[in-house]
Amino acid sequence: MNIQKSFDQEYAPKLYIVPTPIGNLEDITIRALRILKAVDMIAAEDTRNTQKLLNHFEIKTPLISYHEHNKQTRGTLLLEKLQSGQSIAAVSDAGMPAISDPGQELVRLAIENDIDVVVLPGANAALCALVGSGLDTRSFLFYGFLPRKKKDKEIELEKLNYMQASILLYESPYRVKETLQTMQKIFDSRRQIVLARELTKRFEEYARGTIEELLDWAAGRELKGEFCMVVAGNENAADELSPEKWWEEEQLTAKEHVAYIIENEGITSKEAIKRVAAERKQPKREIYQAYHQLGE
Rank of each mutant, 00 (worst) to 15 (best):
L195S: 07
E263T: 14
P121Q: 05
G233H: 04
K60F: 11
G122N: 07
E26V: 01
Y260F: 14
H56P: 13
L160E: 05
K201W: 01
H257K: 05
L78M: 09
T47H: 05
T73P: 05
D116G: 02
N161H: 06
E222S: 03
F203C: 03
Q251G: 12
L127H: 08
A254T: 14
G266V: 10
V91W: 03
E279T: 14
I287S: 10
G266Y: 13
I211W: 04
P243C: 00
A290Q: 07
Q184S: 05
Q251I: 10
F203H: 10
D27F: 09
L195Y: 11
V231L: 08
G295R: 01
E286R: 12
T137S: 09
P102A: 03
L180P: 04
M163A: 12
Q192G: 02
E286Y: 14
Y288P: 04
W217C: 13
N70R: 03
R108N: 14
T20F: 00
R138F: 09
Y11A: 15
Q72D: 14
K71F: 08
S100Y: 13
T50R: 05
E265K: 05
E286P: 07
A259L: 08
P243T: 03
G220T: 03
P97W: 00
D114Q: 08
V119M: 13
V230P: 01
T73W: 06
R48E: 10
Q289L: 10
I22W: 01
L160P: 06
Y170Q: 00
I111A: 15
R148L: 03
D40Q: 09
L241R: 06
H67M: 03
T253L: 04
A237E: 00
I99P: 13
L195Q: 09
A32P: 11
Q164V: 08
D136K: 06
G209A: 14
N234S: 02
G122W: 12
T179S: 11
